[in-house]
Structures are given as structure tokens and as C-alpha cells.
Design a protein around this nucleic acid. Structure first.
Length: 289
DNA sequence: CAGTCGTGGTA
DNA sequence: TTACCAAGACT
């Protein structure tokens, strides 16, 4: 039965996979690593142009490691969560110094790199190197919740439980296992979507526990409500960082006054940026690291 | 474990 | 317009 489930997804994937940059022949492991960093909480459509620029400028980890981290933050532009740019730069330094400039292929070594967690480590091992590991992202958790568990939404993430659930479905053979991981993500991304799933087009329709149960509403714990962005510290941090990105000389405190009127909130945001290593005091002002 | 961390598109 | 969502990681 799991065999049928997996082969259905694999067959569907081979017929329906989108032509994305990181799926092209000859795409490097470094390219895969960069794409996975960028795709953490950022939509595919916004990632693609930044990724192309990034890999043209820094085609290897050593190329990125050779420039100051602030250059990575600048090239990150408005992808969001700029700490990822800092971590990606730090990962490039570690790869250059500890791994001879070659992106590691084992999960343990990948997990040891900054900014790489359970998802990204396995995604790189599987998509760049073809290893057999369960990959679990938000798409896959949703597909399993519906097709297997009959729930409209997944419960809050649990690495142990989620990895075990995906492992139970994973084909034993190597090429199929990798295609199953990619296929489950793709299915969640373009068919079994969060808002308006296209169940009529779903290859798993006949096997879907959620459909069989009549699409019951989700009963479990609600996910934490995301706080409003407008007026938040995050927005202030974003505004300040945009100023630093746009300037190649220290931005003065006076210039930052124009960015946000509330001095207390502005200072709090600035302190946070300095703590995170995204801003550096210099010459009475602030610059990128 | 819950809070924090950007930004833009869509319903 | 507000609210939700997007290939998560770290503290």
C-alpha cells in the first residue's frame, strides 16, 4: 500500500515537475545550498532572480567566503530574514575552511553548518547528492496530514514525528526515494495547497484519507497567529537595514531618525541588528558588517 | 516549547 | 483592508 502511494507520487512528479533553476542538469551542490537558504520562508517566484544573480557573482563557496558578510546581506536585497544571508556567508566560510570548498554530502556535517537545520540538511543531501533521507518541509507535512492522516492541516511541527512519518512512506530504492521527496513537496506546492487545494487534479485523490472522510475541518491546536508587521520592530529593523544596504559609508543616527519617528523603538531595533551582527557601529554611524 | 525574525503577493 | 501564507532556524 505505501508502495502504491509512493509510486503514484513519483509518476505524477515526473510528468508534472516545474522547470526550476535548481532542477536543471549540472546545477551544483553549492547552487542547491544557496537555493535552499533562500527558499526558507520565501516564495519560489521571489527567489529565482536573486539566486541567478548570486550564483553568477559567487559561483563557489570560496567566492562568497572571500567577501565581507555585508556584501551577502546587500545582495540578499529584500528576500527577508536577512540573518539567512549572514548564515549563508558563514556557511561558505566553514565549507571553505573545513571542507576544502566542497559542500558536504552527509547530513551530520550539513547540520553543523550555520543556518542549516533538519529540513535544509536533508534537502541538500537528497537533492544535490541523491542520498536517501526523509525530507520534511511545510508542504510535505500538509500532504501527509491530509492524504495519510485525514486531517485538513498538520499539527505543529515535530521533527521526530514528522521524519518518522515520512520515513514510513519513503521508497527503499535510491532514485525513487529522491523523486518521492521532491514529488511530495511539489504536490504540496501546486496541488495540495494550504488555501484552495485542487483536489480534482490530485493524483492521490483515490487514496486520500481527508477526501475519504469528507474533508473534515481541522480540529487540532491552531498555529500561532503571526503578529502584525505594520508598526512592528521587524518593520523598523527592515527599514534601517534597507538604509545600510543602500549606503557604502556609515549611516548617521540623524539619517536614521528619518527612517522611523519613535526613538525608543528605533534604538531597540538598532540594538537588535547590532546584536545579530547585521549592523556594525562605525565612525559614529552604522554600516553593514 | 514558544517567541522572534522580513517581505510581498493574494483572497 | 486585514489576514493568511511562503522549500525554517535559532534561542
Amino acid at each position: 500500500m505505501p508502495e502504491t502511494f509512493a509510486s503514484t507520487v513519483v509518476d505524477w512528479y515526473h510528468a508534472n515537475r516545474r522547470d526550476l533553476p535548481w532542477r536543471r542538469d549540472g546545477f551544483t551542490a553549492w547552487g542547491t545550498l544557496v537555493s535552499e537558504f533562500m527558499l526558507q520562508q520565501t516564495p519560489v517566484s521571489r527567489v529565482i532572480p536573486r539566486l541567478e544573480e548570486w550564483l553568477t557573482r559567487w559561483p563557489t563557496p570560496a567566492d562568497l567566503a572571500a567577501v565581507p558578510p555585508g556584501e551577502a546581506v546587500r545582495a540578499w536585497q529584500s528576500l527577508g530574514y536577512p540573518r539567512r544571508a549572514l548564515w549563508l556567508h558563514a556557511a561558505a566560510v566553514a565549507i571553505t575552511e573545513r571542507h576544502g570548498g566542497v559542500v558536504p554530502d552527509d547530513v551530520e556535517a550539513l547540520l553543523a553548518l550555520p543556518g542549516i537545520g533538519d529540513y535544509t540538511a536533508r534537502a541538500v543531501a537528497v537533492f544535490a547528492y541523491g542520498a536517501r533521507h526523509p525530507v520534511v518541509d511545510t508542504n510535505i507535512r500538509r500532504v501527509i496530514a491530509r492524504a495519510v492522516d485525514g486531517q485538513g492541516e498538520p499539527p505543529p511541527p515535530s521533527a521526530r514525528r514528522d521524519l518518522a512519518a515520512m520515513s514510513a512512506l519513503l521508497p527503499r530504492e535510491l532514485p525513487a526515494a529522491a523523486a518521492f521527496n521532491a514529488g511530495m513537496m511539489e504536490l504540496g506546492a501546486i496541488v495540495c495547497t494550504a488555501r484552495a487545494p485542487r483536489c480534482d487534479d490530485c493524483p492521490l485523490a483515490l487514496q486520500c484519507a481527508w477526501r475519504a472522510a469528507g474533508y473534515p475541518a481541522y480540529e487540532g491546536p491552531r498555529k500561532a497567529v503571526q503578529k502584525k508587521y505594520e508598526g512592528s520592530d521587524r518593520q523598523v529593523r527592515g527599514r534601517i537595514l534597507a538604509e545600510l544596504r543602500a549606503s557604502h559609508i556609515p549611516v548617521t543616527p540623524e539619517e536614521l531618525e528619518d527612517v522611523w519617528p519613535d526613538a525608543a523603538q528605533r534604538d531597540r531595533a538598532l540594538r537588535g541588528l547590532v546584536e545579530d551582527g547585521l549592523a556594525v557601529p562605525e565612525g559614529g554611524g552604522y554600516t553593514l558588517p
